[in-house]
Design a protein around this nucleic acid. Sequence first.
DNA 1: AAAGGATGAATTTTT
DNA 2: TTCATCCTTT
Length: 737
Amino acid sequence: MTDVTKILDGLNEQQREAVVAPAGPLLITAGAGSGKTTVLTRRIAWLIEASGISPHRIIAVTFTNKAAREMKSRVEGLLGRSSAPYQIATFHGFSNRFLRIHHEAAGLPRDFTILDQDDQKSFINRLIKDNQLNVRNKTPREIQSYINSKKEQQLRAAQASGDSDFRSQIMGPIYELYERECNIRGLVDFAEILLRTVEVMQRNQLVRNEMHERYHHILVDEFQDTNAIQIEWLKLFGSHLNYVTAVGDEDQSIYGWRGAVAKNMLSFGSIFPNTRLVRLEKNYRSTQTILSAANSVISRNRDRFEKNLWTDREGGDPISYYSAYDYRDESQFVARKIRALYAAGMPYSNMSILYRTHAQSNIFENTLSSYKIPFRIYGGVRFFSRMEIKNSLAYLRLMVDPDNNPAFQRIINEPPRGIGEITQRRVIECAQREDVSFMQAARMIVQDESEQMRIRKPLKDFVGLIDGMESDCSELTLSRIIAHVNVHSGLRAYYLSKDTEIDKPRVENLDELINAGENFIRTNMDDTTSNEVVSDGREAITPFLDSVTLDAGDTFDEAPDTLSLMTLHQAKGLEFPVVFLVGMDEKLLPHANSMTFGTPSQINSQIEEERRLCYVGMTRAQDQLYLTRASFRLSFGVLNSYRPSRFLNEIPIEYLQKAIFESDIEQSSSDTPALTFGSEEELENLPGKLVRHNKFGEGTVIDAKAEHSCTIIRINFEDVGEKQIVMEHASLEFVGN
DNA sequence: AAAGGATGAATTTTT
DNA sequence: TTCATCCTTT
């Protein structure tokens, strides 16, 4: 045994109490920056090293893969890499492994396919089209979220369609069909992974006993984000001994829209009797100024525990506030500040730009590149959700699971091989008639002499292609298989031949996928499972596809010194010396959707969630926090006006300082379009003029004024009435006086 | 059957 | 604005 006291080094009293608490239910409320991951990882180390718990009796569950990776590497830092067999995984990752092992008990084929969000949506779309369902005005998206939310409440289609609410009237039958089709095809969506796991644990005593014997200690990160099914999951895996540790902060609960129940923090004690409660209230991250401002904002929420988060980092720089004229102005302010900070010695990697929605990243992308600032956007269109990658993966899928219909449909004519709509219809009809998979139907049509050659020939080639790839790959490693598939599927040549700006990176991405495959093998070499995985690459395909759908995977391309851009949701758990929280406007933060749908009390709790989002953003900052907003923003190509976020008013004025540009020299060199109406003379001439706008039609100018480098013009349109427009951004045509 | 143009719709957050 | 789908032409 190593020196156990090392595990407690540098911890404060509460942290220590949490780490060494005896086995039994333990709830840790951990304010922002209070060292929650430290406590969790040290507790794992403590259980193993001091309490002598066998590592393989421990499960730690997180929500994101990022958090799981982080925790894993920190535990390894404490214990060394050798003592591997503790499980640190996401709810979904762990449950997926569980289902693969117990697929028979779960009633699933061994090679069941995980549908990610996109797959699920297009599958629903297909069902609607193929069966000509009447969906009224429901979008696939609504149907999708209906199904998922029912599953998260452990409601199967049969139970849900008994519900009398009007949503179930319309969508219940679709849920039923969806459920049936998924079962036939061995398709499992994200919600299903958890629901299926819970059902197996509830019904199968053998499996339950096995799990209870195997796993004793469960630790849960971000407990405030648990939803109903995850609580059930926790009960099933943890309540035999009640050795459950949960860490959370209800002020950082930002997944209510996904069914998270922050109140689970309150009910923990009633689920697991005799819970010990430890509060971590010392913040190690931010200055007093930042912390006080954030506390002041979050204290407006009614639905929370009062808490006393403190720091010994007294004082600190005031929070800078910049109210920009428009979105360009805002992005330029941020870019300049970043450039100035960098020039003063602050590495880019110490700074980040946080925003509410992905859509906001665009402007910053453009401005930052024109300022030559290296940056990296988290999320956005993720690598594995790119079309070409999904296509290549579909070939892989078809090799191990030829009956996979979504994969079949995805690539049947990708690249184009003369199998158009008509041929595909024949396949689908045949599959439905004979009750077989699309691939089997294709084989039948190939054999069918009464069928037209025009239809049989291309199908024959396709079937031969897949069969050929399967046998070609028997001796190859995973990455070689991917390379082989990219070439022989014709995808690579196809994108290469198109030779357009959009398709050029697709070839690179396909090649990058080979590396991703190699990477996957390497990082999973150390894992318990993987020796046989390396020798036959085909065995690695399913685990690889799983990891690809379950893990968004933005781990690669670690550039040395880059600025980070991400949404507030993605920022949770991270910290940066300098944070730019942009888009501090009503309709953005709080987001418009949070205030427009639902009953007044729903709206209130939605706004509270937005406030928590704001709180999360502010508390990411260690030393400096910048808040920016803009009066005019472009959406849909139309300029809308915005008012300052209400959350700004909730920050005591003494913590704020108005920020200004260091220099405005470059302002004039920016690429303003041809129309520039800066001079007073021109402004005076504008009123009364007739103009035509490409969206609003014709109208008369009421007045015009110059502000910053732009011109605001008020126009009375014949069709839509009065509008304010920034002349430089709109395409206005002058048609007379 | 495929490609290219026209028309219409949509933007919150994620495992 | 951009993306997807539909409809036309080849």
